Simulated assay, not measured.
Amino acid sequence: MKTILLTNDDGFHSQGLLALKEALCEIADVFIVAPSSEKSACGHGLTLSKPLKMIEIEKNFYKLDNGTPSDCIYLGLHEFFKTKKPDLVISGINLGSNMGEDITYSGTVAGAMEGAIYGIPSIAISQVLKNWEKSHHDFSLAKECITHIVKQIFSSTFPLQDRKLLNINIPNLTSSTFKGYKVTQAGYRIYENSAQKSKNPRGEEYFWLGLHPLKWRERANATLISDFQAISEGYVSLTPITLDLTSMQDLQPLQDWINND
C-alpha cells in the first residue's frame, strides 16, 4: 500500500480533515499529525521556543499540542517515516478557500510546503464555503476530486518538479454541477482592513481581526485564468506553486539599477 501523511490548520477535530481521511483510507495507509487547535493563517511557521507534545488519538492519528501544520509534517516525518518517506503529503481539507496571496498566510498550504521541502509530492486542498456558520459542510465533491487526483498520481507520477506543490480549491458545488478542472495561476487578491476595535469588561482595548471579503482582479498579461475566476465559473482550481520566491523577471532590472548607483 502507498502511504499518505495528512495534516491541516483547522485542528485535529476538523470536519475537513476527517473527510479527507475517509476519502483516502481505502486507497492508502493514512497517517495523521494535526494541530491540537485551530492554526488558521499561521503561515509557514515552526515552533522553536517551546517543546511539542504528540498525543495519540487512535492508531496512526495524532494531535500535536500547540503545534503548527509545518510542525506536524516536520515531526510526522521524523517520527513515522525515518527510513522511507511517505508517497504523498496532503494538507486539508481546509474550511475556506486558499487562493491568490492568501497562500502566503495559509497554514494549510504551509503543511504542503513542508512536505515539498523534503522532496515529497505534496498537495494542499481547500473547500470554498458559502456559509461559515453551518455546523456541517458538504465535502462530497472535494472527496471525489482528491480521490481521483491521488489515484492518478499513484498510477503514473506526480505532475510537478522538485520543491513545488499542487494547490487545489474546490467550488461550493456538487459532483453533478461542477464543470471540471482548470489549471490556474494564483489570482490578485484585494484586501481590506477588517480589524475591529473594542473593550473588554475591564475597559481594556483589544483588536479582533475579521475575514476579508473575497475580492480579486485578473493579473495584467495573465496567460491563464486565476484560481478565483475558475472557482467563480464552477471549476475545480489546480494551481502549481513553487517554493522559489525569486522574481526572475526582476533580476536583470535590479542588476542594472545597482550598477547605475
Rank of each mutant, 00 (worst) to 15 (best):
A28I: 00
S237W: 01
L52M: 09
S91A: 10
N260A: 13
V183S: 09
T83H: 10
T239F: 07
F154Q: 01
L88M: 10
P240F: 01
I57D: 06
L75P: 01
L254I: 08
P159R: 10
Y181N: 11
S155V: 07
I93R: 02
E38I: 11
I125L: 07
L173F: 08
G100N: 08
Q127L: 15
S194H: 04
L251G: 00
T184K: 03
S126I: 09
F31K: 01
L160N: 14
L129V: 14
S37L: 08
T242S: 15
S36I: 09
I125N: 02
G76N: 03
L88N: 05
R219W: 10
W216E: 02
I241N: 01
T47H: 05
D29N: 09
S247E: 11
P51Y: 05
G234P: 13
I168L: 11
A222F: 10
T147D: 09
F31V: 00
L52H: 04
N94R: 14
K63A: 07
A34S: 10
L46K: 07
I149S: 01
A110S: 15
A112G: 05
I120S: 01
T157E: 14
F61R: 10
S97R: 12
P86Y: 10
K39D: 00
I93V: 13
H137P: 04
Q249K: 15
K182H: 05
M54H: 01
G111N: 11
E205T: 12
I4K: 08
S135P: 01
T246D: 09
L209D: 13
N221T: 01
I258K: 13
K143I: 05
T104G: 00
C25V: 03
M1T: 12
A220M: 10
G76R: 00
S49V: 05
G43N: 11
F81L: 06
S122P: 01
G45T: 13
D256T: 06
T147Y: 08
T239C: 15
T104R: 11
N200A: 03
P35A: 07
E114H: 13
N169Y: 06
N259A: 14
N60G: 02
E79Q: 15
E101M: 07
N98H: 12
L214T: 02
Q185N: 03
N98I: 09
E133K: 14
E79Y: 12
H44M: 02
N172I: 02
D29A: 07
L173W: 06
F154V: 04
G96E: 05
P121M: 08
E38A: 07
Y191G: 05
E56K: 15
V150A: 13
L88P: 05
I90F: 06
E204P: 00
P201T: 02
N260I: 01
K2N: 12
K82V: 03
K21V: 14
A230W: 03
A41W: 02
F61I: 09
T104A: 07
L173T: 15
D29V: 06
W216H: 15
L48E: 13
C25I: 01
P159N: 10
L17Q: 06
G180A: 08
L17F: 12
H136E: 13
E58R: 15
I55L: 14
L245R: 13
V150W: 07
K164R: 15
L17D: 03
I225G: 00
H212V: 11
T3Q: 15
R219P: 00
T223K: 13
L46Q: 03
P240I: 00
